[in-house]
Simulated scan of single mutants.
Amino acid sequence: MIEKRSKVDFRLNAIVDGSLRDRGNLADLAALAARNGATLIQYRDKEASTRDLIGEALAIRAALAGTGAPLIVNDRVDVALAVGAAGVHLGREDMDPAMARRILGPDALIGATVKNAADAEAALAAPVDYVCVGGVFATLSKRNPDPPLGLEGFARLRALFAEARPELPVGAIAGIDAARAGEVLRAGASGVAVISGIFRAPEIAAAAARMRRIVDQALAERGS
């Protein structure tokens, strides 16, 4: 029996990707998003060395001090452990969540990517604190060999969690901008994971604040 967990606020997961360095210092970008509504910061960098990942994650963690937004490291359990991050986000080819839980301990936040029904079944049996379903829409932020799920595909996977683990936050990711955030919330999302919709906007602070308002309004309208 998986213990019930509701220790993560997934309303607005701002993903600070290594590709955003042209927009500024990653730690500064993370802090800007957190100060303007992001409830969770995820650091993702597919190209950096382990040493550079640790250095960047330490800088981001320091920049988030006092914001209330925890830092999650994408993929790398070792980096999350080394820098004292709040947790880790795992894809289908990453470390098994149960093993990550043994390494990081009971208080760590562990999230999982869900792309299809098989992923959903695996996540339902795993000690995860949230899942992120996607990609819902097409995105330029990450190469994705799988076709977009669309709102109907997202809703089908969301329903599996609503029935089996209703307390589990289920986020939506990929191609989510201000217009689409309300759509995925109305389809049952607990929140949204965003890269370009915040960090590629002309005004990052304003984009984060607007996205947070949209999410909060949609959740209030459905009584969540």
Rank of each mutant, 00 (worst) to 15 (best):
M1P: 10
I2H: 05
I2L: 15
K4H: 06
V8G: 09
L12F: 11
L12E: 09
D17W: 00
D17C: 00
S19W: 00
S19I: 00
L20V: 01
R21K: 07
R21P: 00
R23G: 11
G24F: 06
N25Y: 00
L26T: 00
A27F: 02
D28M: 04
L29V: 03
L32S: 08
A34N: 05
N36T: 02
A38Q: 07
A38I: 03
T39A: 15
L40I: 06
D45E: 09
S49L: 12
D52M: 10
I54E: 11
G55W: 02
A57F: 02
A57E: 01
I60Y: 01
L64N: 05
G68A: 09
A69M: 04
A69I: 00
P70K: 04
V73T: 04
N74A: 06
N74C: 06
D75R: 07
D78I: 03
L81G: 00
A82F: 00
A86R: 08
V88F: 04
G91H: 08
R92I: 01
D94A: 07
D94V: 09
P97R: 09
A100Q: 12
R101D: 06
P106F: 00
P106K: 13
D107N: 12
I110W: 02
V114Y: 03
D119M: 10
D119F: 03
A120V: 02
A122K: 15
A122H: 03
A122D: 12
D129N: 07
Y130T: 14
Y130V: 08
G134A: 07
G134H: 04
V136I: 14
F137N: 11
F137P: 13
F137V: 06
F137R: 12
A138M: 07
T139C: 12
T139H: 10
T139S: 15
K142H: 05
K142G: 05
R143F: 02
R143P: 08
P145H: 08
L151G: 13
F154N: 12
F154S: 13
L157S: 09
R158Q: 13
A159C: 08
L160A: 03
F161V: 10
A162I: 01
A162M: 11
A162T: 11
E163D: 13
E167F: 01
L168M: 14
P169T: 13
G171Y: 07
G171M: 15
I173Q: 14
A174H: 10
A174S: 15
A174P: 13
A178N: 06
R180P: 10
A181K: 10
A181V: 07
L185E: 13
S190L: 08
F199M: 12
R200Q: 14
A201P: 15
P202A: 10
E203Y: 01
A206H: 05
A206E: 15
A207H: 10
A207Y: 06
A208Y: 01
A209H: 07
M211Y: 06
V215C: 03
V215M: 13
D216C: 11
E221A: 15
S224R: 15
